[in-house]
Amino acid sequence: MSATIEARIWRGGAAGKFETFSVPRRESQTVLDVVTFIQRKLDPTLSYRFACRVGMCGSCAMTVNGRPRWTCRTHVARLGDGPLTVEPLANLPRIKDLAVDMAPFFDKWAKAGGKFVPSAAEGADFARVEPESEARRQADAGIECIGCAVCYSACDLVSWNPDYLGPAALNRAWTLVNDVRDGGQEARLSAVAGDAGCHACHSQQSCREHCPKSLNPTASIAGLKRASLRAAWKGGA
């Protein structure tokens, strides 16, 4: 391993170019450490986004050597000895340098019916949900999403159809479809069954492959496809 890392960093917005920095190699160094070193020591005008640094907040995702990754938990040593290329996430508008506009990503969560709709009246007793029930296990499988947009950035369908709701929003919808307390199921299934919804997924599985939390949006979307077909069969959705 060389003593320094040659880091190629995207500078600018939609139009821009790569700028190369030389960063000292350290033990247990993450890609976020490299970007932070550049911003603190080499060029304070570099824009990027992070918060927790421990893989919880989902704000530091970037494209690293062509793949979307959470940079705070991506060790440089595991990427090999070659140059390190860091770009903003794909499929989202570039604001400046490594920061993208996340608004379209989260707007789609709302469009996919990602909001919990309580079915019980206010002040009602706690709902009893059996942890081992099939619906609860399905919801549990998808509920740890940190909203980092890595899956959204890895998805070809999003780049081919900008209206496509994308893996994270559909995964969120699936967790709510399996929430027995929710009262907004019909509207939610209608929202995800459209042209830009779950049936647009081609099961390429890049979302599952890249999710830093090892979630499986492909399986969630397949669940939505079955649920919407069942509803259509019964005359709904």
């Binding site: 062509g66 793949r67 979307p68 599985q205 890049s206 492959e209």
Partner: peptide, 12 residues
Amino acid sequence: RPHRNHPAWWAF
């Protein structure tokens, strides 16, 4: 592109 280099994408 590197993000496509996995079996399920090639199968697609």
